[in-house]
Amino acid sequence: MKDVYLITSGPHVHSTDSIPRVMYSVVLALLPAVAVSILFFGAAALMMYAISIITCIAAEAACQKIMKRPVTVTDGSVLITAILLAMNLPPSAPWWLVVVGSLTAVVLGKQVYGGLGYNPFNPVLVARVVLLISFPVQMTNWVSPAPLFSGIDMVSMATPLGEIKTELLTTGAIDLARYNYFDFTVGFMGGSLGEMSVIALLLGALFLLYRGYITWHIPVTYIGTVFVLTGIFWMYDPTSFANPVFHVLAGGLVLGAFFMATDMVTTPVSPRGMVIFGLGCGILTVVIRLFGGYPEGVAFSILLMNAATPIIDRYTVPRKFGYTRPDEAGGAS
Protein backbone atom coordinates (compact mmCIF):
# COMPACT_ATOMS: atom_id res chain seq x y z
CA MET A 1 0.00 0.00 0.00
CA LYS A 2 1.39 3.37 -0.98
CA ASP A 3 2.24 5.52 1.97
CA VAL A 4 2.39 8.75 0.06
CA TYR A 5 -0.90 10.06 -1.25
CA LEU A 6 -1.73 12.62 -3.86
CA ILE A 7 -2.81 16.00 -2.62
CA THR A 8 -4.31 18.58 -4.89
CA SER A 9 -6.70 21.39 -4.33
CA GLY A 10 -10.33 20.45 -5.04
CA PRO A 11 -12.32 19.52 -7.05
CA HIS A 12 -11.15 15.95 -7.14
CA VAL A 13 -13.33 14.86 -10.02
CA HIS A 14 -13.46 16.28 -13.50
CA SER A 15 -15.80 16.34 -16.45
CA THR A 16 -14.73 14.37 -19.48
CA ASP A 17 -13.86 17.58 -21.32
CA SER A 18 -10.30 18.08 -22.46
CA ILE A 19 -8.54 20.19 -25.05
CA PRO A 20 -8.22 17.36 -27.61
CA ARG A 21 -11.91 16.56 -27.17
CA VAL A 22 -12.89 20.14 -27.94
CA MET A 23 -10.55 20.41 -30.90
CA TYR A 24 -11.45 17.11 -32.52
CA SER A 25 -15.12 17.89 -32.11
CA VAL A 26 -14.60 21.01 -34.18
CA VAL A 27 -12.76 18.94 -36.79
CA LEU A 28 -15.72 16.58 -36.86
CA ALA A 29 -18.05 19.52 -37.30
CA LEU A 30 -16.07 20.69 -40.29
CA LEU A 31 -16.17 17.33 -42.04
CA PRO A 32 -19.52 17.84 -43.82
CA ALA A 33 -18.25 21.04 -45.43
CA VAL A 34 -14.93 19.36 -46.26
CA ALA A 35 -16.80 16.48 -47.87
CA VAL A 36 -18.90 18.83 -50.02
CA SER A 37 -15.84 20.77 -51.11
CA ILE A 38 -14.07 17.58 -52.19
CA LEU A 39 -17.22 16.50 -53.95
CA PHE A 40 -17.39 19.73 -55.93
CA PHE A 41 -13.71 20.33 -56.53
CA GLY A 42 -12.19 16.90 -56.58
CA ALA A 43 -8.47 16.39 -56.66
CA ALA A 44 -7.65 20.07 -56.34
CA ALA A 45 -9.43 20.23 -53.01
CA LEU A 46 -7.82 17.08 -51.69
CA MET A 47 -4.41 18.43 -52.59
CA MET A 48 -5.08 21.67 -50.80
CA TYR A 49 -6.20 19.95 -47.64
CA ALA A 50 -3.24 17.61 -47.72
CA ILE A 51 -0.67 20.35 -48.28
CA SER A 52 -2.25 22.55 -45.65
CA ILE A 53 -2.42 19.86 -42.98
CA ILE A 54 1.13 18.64 -43.53
CA THR A 55 2.63 22.13 -43.63
CA CYS A 56 0.72 23.34 -40.59
CA ILE A 57 1.64 20.36 -38.44
CA ALA A 58 5.28 20.54 -39.50
CA ALA A 59 5.42 24.29 -38.89
CA GLU A 60 3.93 23.98 -35.40
CA ALA A 61 6.21 21.13 -34.40
CA ALA A 62 9.25 23.01 -35.68
CA CYS A 63 8.30 26.24 -33.91
CA GLN A 64 7.67 24.51 -30.62
CA LYS A 65 10.95 22.62 -30.82
CA ILE A 66 12.89 25.78 -31.61
CA MET A 67 11.18 27.75 -28.85
CA LYS A 68 11.82 24.87 -26.40
CA ARG A 69 8.15 24.40 -25.68
CA PRO A 70 6.41 21.04 -25.39
CA VAL A 71 5.30 19.81 -28.82
CA THR A 72 1.50 19.65 -28.82
CA VAL A 73 0.57 18.93 -32.42
CA THR A 74 -1.67 16.07 -31.38
CA ASP A 75 -4.09 18.23 -29.44
CA GLY A 76 -6.02 18.94 -32.65
CA SER A 77 -5.82 22.74 -32.68
CA VAL A 78 -3.40 22.92 -35.59
CA LEU A 79 -5.57 20.47 -37.54
CA ILE A 80 -8.46 22.91 -37.28
CA THR A 81 -6.23 25.75 -38.45
CA ALA A 82 -5.10 23.69 -41.43
CA ILE A 83 -8.61 22.68 -42.50
CA LEU A 84 -10.07 26.15 -42.05
CA LEU A 85 -7.19 27.72 -43.92
CA ALA A 86 -7.73 25.48 -46.91
CA MET A 87 -11.43 26.26 -46.73
CA ASN A 88 -10.66 29.96 -46.94
CA LEU A 89 -8.66 29.77 -50.15
CA PRO A 90 -9.99 29.66 -53.70
CA PRO A 91 -10.09 26.10 -55.09
CA SER A 92 -7.61 27.05 -57.79
CA ALA A 93 -4.92 28.01 -55.30
CA PRO A 94 -1.45 26.87 -56.35
CA TRP A 95 0.43 24.65 -53.90
CA TRP A 96 2.87 27.38 -52.88
CA LEU A 97 -0.01 29.66 -51.91
CA VAL A 98 -1.26 27.01 -49.53
CA VAL A 99 2.22 26.56 -48.08
CA VAL A 100 2.74 30.29 -47.53
CA GLY A 101 -0.71 30.55 -46.01
CA SER A 102 -0.08 27.63 -43.66
CA LEU A 103 3.23 29.03 -42.50
CA THR A 104 1.73 32.46 -41.95
CA ALA A 105 -1.19 31.07 -40.00
CA VAL A 106 0.84 28.85 -37.70
CA VAL A 107 3.96 30.93 -37.21
CA LEU A 108 2.76 34.52 -37.46
CA GLY A 109 -0.77 33.85 -36.35
CA LYS A 110 -0.19 31.58 -33.38
CA GLN A 111 3.28 30.47 -32.36
CA VAL A 112 4.97 33.86 -32.04
CA TYR A 113 2.39 34.81 -29.44
CA GLY A 114 3.14 31.81 -27.29
CA GLY A 115 1.07 29.07 -28.89
CA LEU A 116 -2.46 27.93 -28.19
CA GLY A 117 -4.46 30.32 -26.11
CA TYR A 118 -2.21 33.33 -26.46
CA ASN A 119 -2.91 34.63 -29.94
CA PRO A 120 -4.98 37.82 -30.14
CA PHE A 121 -6.02 37.30 -33.77
CA ASN A 122 -7.66 34.38 -35.52
CA PRO A 123 -4.65 32.66 -37.19
CA VAL A 124 -6.60 31.49 -40.24
CA LEU A 125 -7.87 34.97 -40.95
CA VAL A 126 -4.43 36.49 -40.43
CA ALA A 127 -3.17 34.14 -43.14
CA ARG A 128 -6.09 34.80 -45.43
CA VAL A 129 -5.72 38.55 -45.21
CA VAL A 130 -1.95 38.42 -45.65
CA LEU A 131 -2.42 36.30 -48.78
CA LEU A 132 -5.23 38.46 -50.10
CA ILE A 133 -3.16 41.59 -49.91
CA SER A 134 0.08 39.99 -51.08
CA PHE A 135 -1.29 37.81 -53.87
CA PRO A 136 -4.55 39.44 -54.96
CA VAL A 137 -4.62 37.71 -58.33
CA GLN A 138 -4.26 34.16 -57.11
CA MET A 139 -6.57 34.84 -54.21
CA THR A 140 -9.40 36.01 -56.43
CA ASN A 141 -9.09 33.43 -59.18
CA TRP A 142 -12.47 31.86 -58.58
CA VAL A 143 -13.48 28.74 -60.48
CA SER A 144 -16.63 26.78 -61.10
CA PRO A 145 -17.15 23.47 -59.38
CA ALA A 146 -15.47 20.50 -61.10
CA PRO A 147 -16.69 17.45 -59.23
CA LEU A 148 -14.64 14.31 -58.73
CA PHE A 149 -14.55 11.98 -61.71
CA SER A 150 -16.72 14.34 -63.71
CA GLY A 151 -14.04 15.15 -66.19
CA ILE A 152 -14.99 18.82 -66.09
CA ASP A 153 -12.17 21.27 -65.97
CA MET A 154 -12.33 24.17 -63.65
CA VAL A 155 -13.42 27.31 -65.42
CA SER A 156 -13.06 30.79 -64.16
CA MET A 157 -16.19 32.08 -62.56
CA ALA A 158 -16.84 35.01 -60.32
CA THR A 159 -18.33 34.78 -56.85
CA PRO A 160 -21.81 36.15 -56.44
CA LEU A 161 -20.62 39.00 -54.23
CA GLY A 162 -17.87 39.84 -56.69
CA GLU A 163 -20.35 39.79 -59.53
CA ILE A 164 -22.79 42.21 -57.95
CA LYS A 165 -20.00 44.61 -57.01
CA THR A 166 -18.75 44.68 -60.59
CA GLU A 167 -22.29 44.95 -61.88
CA LEU A 168 -22.94 47.92 -59.64
CA LEU A 169 -19.86 49.69 -60.85
CA THR A 170 -20.51 49.00 -64.52
CA THR A 171 -24.26 49.23 -64.87
CA GLY A 172 -25.26 50.95 -61.67
CA ALA A 173 -27.87 48.36 -60.85
CA ILE A 174 -28.04 44.76 -59.70
CA ASP A 175 -30.10 42.02 -61.22
CA LEU A 176 -30.52 39.19 -58.76
CA ALA A 177 -32.98 37.18 -60.82
CA ARG A 178 -30.32 34.91 -62.23
CA TYR A 179 -29.31 33.60 -58.80
CA ASN A 180 -30.69 30.34 -57.57
CA TYR A 181 -30.73 30.34 -53.78
CA PHE A 182 -30.88 26.59 -53.69
CA ASP A 183 -27.50 26.54 -55.37
CA PHE A 184 -26.18 28.81 -52.70
CA THR A 185 -27.47 26.64 -49.91
CA VAL A 186 -26.02 23.48 -51.34
CA GLY A 187 -22.85 25.18 -52.42
CA PHE A 188 -22.93 25.14 -56.19
CA MET A 189 -21.36 28.53 -56.70
CA GLY A 190 -18.05 30.30 -56.84
CA GLY A 191 -16.18 31.09 -53.72
CA SER A 192 -13.57 29.83 -51.32
CA LEU A 193 -13.22 26.11 -50.90
CA GLY A 194 -15.26 25.79 -47.78
CA GLU A 195 -17.57 28.73 -47.64
CA MET A 196 -20.08 27.67 -50.21
CA SER A 197 -22.25 24.96 -48.82
CA VAL A 198 -24.43 26.57 -46.20
CA ILE A 199 -26.19 23.31 -45.39
CA ALA A 200 -22.99 21.40 -44.71
CA LEU A 201 -21.71 24.21 -42.53
CA LEU A 202 -24.93 24.45 -40.55
CA LEU A 203 -24.87 20.73 -39.94
CA GLY A 204 -21.47 20.98 -38.35
CA ALA A 205 -22.46 24.08 -36.40
CA LEU A 206 -25.50 22.31 -34.95
CA PHE A 207 -23.22 19.57 -33.68
CA LEU A 208 -20.97 22.12 -31.95
CA LEU A 209 -23.96 23.89 -30.43
CA TYR A 210 -25.24 20.60 -29.09
CA ARG A 211 -21.87 19.84 -27.52
CA GLY A 212 -21.77 23.30 -26.03
CA TYR A 213 -18.45 24.28 -27.59
CA ILE A 214 -19.99 27.28 -29.31
CA THR A 215 -22.95 29.26 -28.09
CA TRP A 216 -25.69 30.90 -30.13
CA HIS A 217 -24.66 34.45 -29.15
CA ILE A 218 -22.05 35.28 -31.76
CA PRO A 219 -23.44 33.51 -34.87
CA VAL A 220 -27.01 34.65 -34.32
CA THR A 221 -25.99 38.23 -33.56
CA TYR A 222 -23.56 38.37 -36.44
CA ILE A 223 -25.84 36.93 -39.07
CA GLY A 224 -28.80 38.77 -37.62
CA THR A 225 -27.02 42.11 -37.80
CA VAL A 226 -25.98 41.50 -41.40
CA PHE A 227 -29.52 40.50 -42.26
CA VAL A 228 -31.09 43.54 -40.64
CA LEU A 229 -28.62 46.10 -41.95
CA THR A 230 -28.57 44.80 -45.52
CA GLY A 231 -32.35 44.55 -45.31
CA ILE A 232 -32.59 48.23 -44.41
CA PHE A 233 -30.42 49.26 -47.34
CA TRP A 234 -32.20 46.92 -49.72
CA MET A 235 -35.57 48.30 -48.74
CA TYR A 236 -34.26 51.80 -49.33
CA ASP A 237 -32.98 51.01 -52.84
CA PRO A 238 -33.53 47.51 -54.20
CA THR A 239 -31.65 48.18 -57.39
CA SER A 240 -28.37 49.18 -55.78
CA PHE A 241 -28.41 46.73 -52.91
CA ALA A 242 -28.88 42.99 -52.83
CA ASN A 243 -31.56 41.55 -50.57
CA PRO A 244 -30.63 40.27 -47.12
CA VAL A 245 -31.15 36.58 -47.91
CA PHE A 246 -28.61 36.87 -50.68
CA HIS A 247 -26.16 38.50 -48.33
CA VAL A 248 -26.54 35.81 -45.73
CA LEU A 249 -26.17 32.92 -48.16
CA ALA A 250 -23.48 34.30 -50.45
CA GLY A 251 -19.89 34.75 -49.46
CA GLY A 252 -18.19 33.49 -46.36
CA LEU A 253 -20.68 34.75 -43.80
CA VAL A 254 -21.99 31.40 -42.61
CA LEU A 255 -18.49 29.92 -42.45
CA GLY A 256 -17.20 33.01 -40.70
CA ALA A 257 -20.06 33.39 -38.25
CA PHE A 258 -20.11 29.78 -37.07
CA PHE A 259 -16.47 28.72 -37.29
CA MET A 260 -14.21 31.76 -37.27
CA ALA A 261 -16.00 34.36 -35.23
CA THR A 262 -16.64 31.70 -32.58
CA ASP A 263 -12.96 30.84 -32.13
CA MET A 264 -12.69 30.74 -28.34
CA VAL A 265 -9.23 32.16 -27.97
CA THR A 266 -9.84 35.41 -29.81
CA THR A 267 -13.38 36.27 -28.78
CA PRO A 268 -14.95 37.63 -25.58
CA VAL A 269 -15.89 35.22 -22.77
CA SER A 270 -19.05 36.75 -21.36
CA PRO A 271 -22.44 36.44 -23.08
CA ARG A 272 -22.86 40.19 -23.24
CA GLY A 273 -19.39 40.56 -24.69
CA MET A 274 -20.15 37.96 -27.33
CA VAL A 275 -23.26 39.83 -28.44
CA ILE A 276 -21.28 43.06 -28.80
CA PHE A 277 -18.66 41.15 -30.76
CA GLY A 278 -21.26 39.73 -33.14
CA LEU A 279 -22.81 43.14 -33.56
CA GLY A 280 -19.49 44.74 -34.38
CA CYS A 281 -18.60 42.03 -36.86
CA GLY A 282 -21.97 42.41 -38.54
CA ILE A 283 -21.73 46.16 -38.90
CA LEU A 284 -18.19 46.03 -40.25
CA THR A 285 -19.01 43.24 -42.71
CA VAL A 286 -21.95 45.18 -44.11
CA VAL A 287 -19.95 48.40 -44.40
CA ILE A 288 -17.13 46.67 -46.25
CA ARG A 289 -19.46 44.73 -48.51
CA LEU A 290 -21.65 47.65 -49.44
CA PHE A 291 -19.29 50.58 -49.37
CA GLY A 292 -15.78 49.21 -49.22
CA GLY A 293 -13.36 48.27 -51.94
CA TYR A 294 -13.53 44.51 -51.33
CA PRO A 295 -16.55 42.43 -52.22
CA GLU A 296 -16.27 40.36 -49.04
CA GLY A 297 -15.73 41.79 -45.59
CA VAL A 298 -15.98 38.84 -43.23
CA ALA A 299 -12.26 38.25 -42.72
CA PHE A 300 -11.45 41.89 -42.12
CA SER A 301 -14.34 42.52 -39.79
CA ILE A 302 -13.60 39.51 -37.61
CA LEU A 303 -9.94 40.50 -37.35
CA LEU A 304 -10.87 44.05 -36.41
CA MET A 305 -13.22 42.81 -33.72
CA ASN A 306 -10.54 40.41 -32.45
CA ALA A 307 -8.49 43.51 -31.72
CA ALA A 308 -11.40 44.85 -29.69
CA THR A 309 -11.88 41.67 -27.67
CA PRO A 310 -9.71 42.68 -24.67
CA ILE A 311 -11.56 45.92 -24.16
CA ILE A 312 -14.92 44.25 -24.65
CA ASP A 313 -13.97 41.72 -21.99
CA ARG A 314 -12.87 44.51 -19.66
CA TYR A 315 -16.19 46.29 -19.84
CA THR A 316 -18.54 43.33 -19.93
CA VAL A 317 -17.53 41.55 -16.73
CA PRO A 318 -20.68 39.60 -15.80
CA ARG A 319 -22.75 40.80 -12.87
CA LYS A 320 -21.80 38.79 -9.85
CA PHE A 321 -24.46 37.01 -7.81
CA GLY A 322 -25.66 39.37 -5.14
CA TYR A 323 -24.32 42.45 -6.88
CA THR A 324 -25.54 45.56 -5.11
CA ARG A 325 -25.22 49.00 -6.64
CA PRO A 326 -23.16 51.24 -4.34
CA ASP A 327 -26.19 53.38 -3.44
CA GLU A 328 -28.18 50.29 -2.52
CA ALA A 329 -25.45 48.72 -0.46
CA GLY A 330 -27.00 49.65 2.87
CA GLY A 331 -26.21 47.15 5.58
CA ALA A 332 -24.17 44.57 3.66
CA SER A 333 -20.48 45.37 3.66
Binding site: T72, G115, T215, M264, V269, S270, P318, R319, K320, Y323
Partner: peptide
Protein backbone atom coordinates in the same frame (compact mmCIF):
# COMPACT_ATOMS: atom_id res chain seq x y z
CA UNK B 1 -2.89 23.06 -20.66
CA UNK B 2 -3.10 26.67 -21.80
CA UNK B 3 -6.30 28.56 -21.11
CA UNK B 4 -8.44 28.45 -24.23
CA UNK B 5 -10.68 31.30 -23.07
CA UNK B 6 -13.53 28.94 -23.88
CA UNK B 7 -15.74 30.54 -21.27
CA UNK B 8 -16.93 27.27 -19.69
CA UNK B 9 -15.90 28.54 -16.25
CA UNK B 10 -17.85 31.78 -16.79
CA UNK B 11 -20.96 29.85 -17.85
CA UNK B 12 -20.96 27.46 -14.89
CA UNK B 13 -19.94 29.79 -12.06
CA UNK B 14 -22.93 30.01 -9.67
CA UNK B 15 -21.64 33.33 -8.37
CA UNK B 16 -21.39 34.92 -11.82
CA UNK B 17 -17.63 35.39 -11.70
CA UNK B 18 -14.92 35.16 -14.38
CA UNK B 19 -12.47 32.52 -13.09
CA UNK B 20 -10.26 32.52 -16.18
Amino acid sequence: GPCLRCGNCVRVCPMGLTPL
